[in-house]
Design a protein around this nucleic acid. Structure first.
Length: 126
DNA sequence: CACATGACCGTAG
DNA sequence: TCTACGGCCATGT
């Protein structure tokens, strides 16, 4: 399946904490097409930060809203918007933005992830 | 340094 | 489909 989150593989360099983590996350998120979705683990995977899905969440949290980065297209692997009081309502804003892009989201934040999951081209990212 | 907390993930029951 | 648990790792106290 497409949503496989590889566990930390010692044969691969995890990720470099050179201070560019946020930048890497944002640039990958910026690649998600309009009307498509990606998961936190998927983004972590794409930037070589295996097992750092939580850090992707932190990186998105650091965005100053409104932002040109389509942060709302990132949801959890369970196919739900990660609802949290600490988000100060940005979770509900996320729901509105997704609805505006044509993605059906129910009252509990559930959405058809399989159907809208973004599958990046292998050769596109270099 | 110890400990608690997250926009997480997968498995088990 | 739901809850519970363990593992994960950067941050904050």
């Amino acid at each position: 399946m497409a949503i496989q989150i590889p566990l930390k593989d010692p044969s691969v360099e995890p990720y470099v904490s050179d201070g560019t983590f946020d930048q890497r996350v944002w640039s990958q998120v910026a690649r998600i097409p309009h009307g498509r979705l990606a998961t936190y683990g998927q983004i972590a995977d794409l930037i070589g930060a295996y097992g750092c899905a939580r850090q992707v969440g932190w990186a998105l949290r650091r965005l100053k809203l409104p932002s040109s980065v389509p942060w709302h297209r990132v949801v959890n692997a369970q196919g739900r918007i990660s609802m949290s009081l600490s988000r100060e309502g940005s979770d509900w804003i996320q729901r509105d933005l997704l609805l505006a892009e044509g993605i059906p989201v129910d009252g509990e934040g559930r959405l058809p992830l399989r159907q809208f999951l973004w599958q990046p081209d292998a050769h596109a990212g270099d």
